[in-house]
């Protein structure tokens, strides 16, 4: 149990630090980082390399945005096995629908409730 939490912290932190290294080295924007990590996650999953990381580190691999890429790829692969060509279209978004819908709905609600504030530093 506690060992799993340690692994979650170590792997999750490592993936985030890789993002930070990219920011420092290339001055890359956050949108590009997200795109890059989603793509990497999806490709790793397609090659069968991401599932072992999830087995090992749990949320340490599913919480970083690479996990989002993994869900997209996994969804597409599973759907293709069941539905063939239709699954190619429906699989990715079906698997990630919960996350996207949640992000949209909460963004909608909180943007109505709050306004952005001036930065101080």
């Amino acid at each position: 149990m506690w060992l799993l939490y340690l692994k979650v912290f170590l792997v999750g932190g490592l993936i985030c630090m890789l993002g930070q290294i990219l920011i420092i080295k290339t001055n890359i924007t956050s949108a590009r980082i997200l795109v890059l990590f989603v793509t990497i996650g999806a490709i790793l999953e397609a090659l069968g390399l991401y599932d072992p990381i999830v087995e090992f580190a749990g949320a340490g691999a599913t919480v970083p945005i690479t996990g989002f890429g993994r869900s997209l790829a996994k969804g597409a692969i599973d759907a293709v096995k069941q539905q063939g060509l239709l699954g190619v279209f429906t699989g990715g978004l079906t698997a990630t629908a919960g996350g996207i819908a949640a992000a949209v709905i909460f963004a909608y609600i909180f943007s109505l409730l709050f306004s952005s504030k001036t930065k101080k530093y």
């Binding site: 920011i23 924007t29 956050s30 952005s116 504030k117 001036t118 930065k119």
Partner: peptide, 18 residues
């Protein structure tokens, strides 16, 4: 104005970037 320039040229204020 810091905020109007930021809105036009850069990112939303609440975006957590460095």
């Amino acid at each position: 104005h810091f905020t109007t320039a930021e809105r036009q040229y850069r990112y939303p204020l609440e975006l957590g970037n460095q």
